[in-house]
């Protein structure tokens, strides 16, 4: 009984600390958190497999509000139900909350500080590399199955988001419908 309680406490603590660390480094928009969460919870801790992770990101995108909040909330929920979701929510909100509270008091000095902006510029290039690194791995996983439909969806969705300034909700609906129509798993008998 005690062990179970300890295990749960340890799970909550890990969830909290990992999302706290990750959130403190998600510069430049919600998508940045996805590679970080992926690396930690899929590749590092092996708590969630990659398909389920992508499903959770899709759900996060279908949910209103910041993607970073939604994605980590869902990982918490997956690992430990509602309480887990609250723990990861807190872990994710705390860094921007604390930093912004402090910054709001002397924000002009912060905004115009040359060292701050030089460090951030250096970091931005690495953020791009981090995303590209994870995208290469994910895209490779889609391509290596050699199934034409997922590859087409990936290329089409990429082209559409690059060329048109289109709301992601629209892409999600279209791809979800296409999937329901054409990508349902084949029945065992047909194999």
């Amino acid at each position: 009984m005690e062990d179970k309680k300890d295990g749960k406490l340890k799970l909550f603590l890990t969830l909290f600390l990992e999302t706290l660390k990750i959130s403190a480094f998600t510069f430049g928009g919600g998508y940045v958190i996805v590679p970080l969460l992926q690396k930690k919870f899929v590749d590092g801790l092996h708590w969630i497999d990659e398909d389920e992770m992508l499903d959770l990101v899709a759900i996060a995108q279908s949910t209103p509000g910041p993607l970073a909040i939604n994605a980590s909330l869902l990982i918490g929920y997956r690992m430990a139900g509602f309480a887990g979701a609250m723990v990861t929510l807190l872990g994710t909100v705390l860094p921007p909350f604390v930093i912004m509270s402090v910054v709001s008091v002397f924000y002009i000095a912060f905004r115009d500080n040359r060292i701050v902006s030089a460090v951030l510029k250096g970091m931005q290039a690495a953020v791009a590399a981090v995303i590209l690194d994870v995208v290469i791995t994910m895209a490779h996983n889609v391509i290596k199955d050699k199934r034409i439909f997922p590859i087409l969806i990936m290329l089409a969705a990429f082209a559409v988001t690059i060329v048109f300034d289109i709301n992601v909700v629209f892409i999600i609906i279209v791809c979800g419908v296409l999937g329901a129509l054409f990508m349902r798993p084949k029945k065992e008998a047909e194999k």
């Binding site: 997922p150 969705a157 990429f158 791809c175 999937g179 054409f182 349902r184």
Partner: peptide, 12 residues
Amino acid sequence: MNGLRPAVVAMI
């Protein structure tokens, strides 16, 4: 979900 996963990769 099979339809969404490649789209999520594309959006990232």
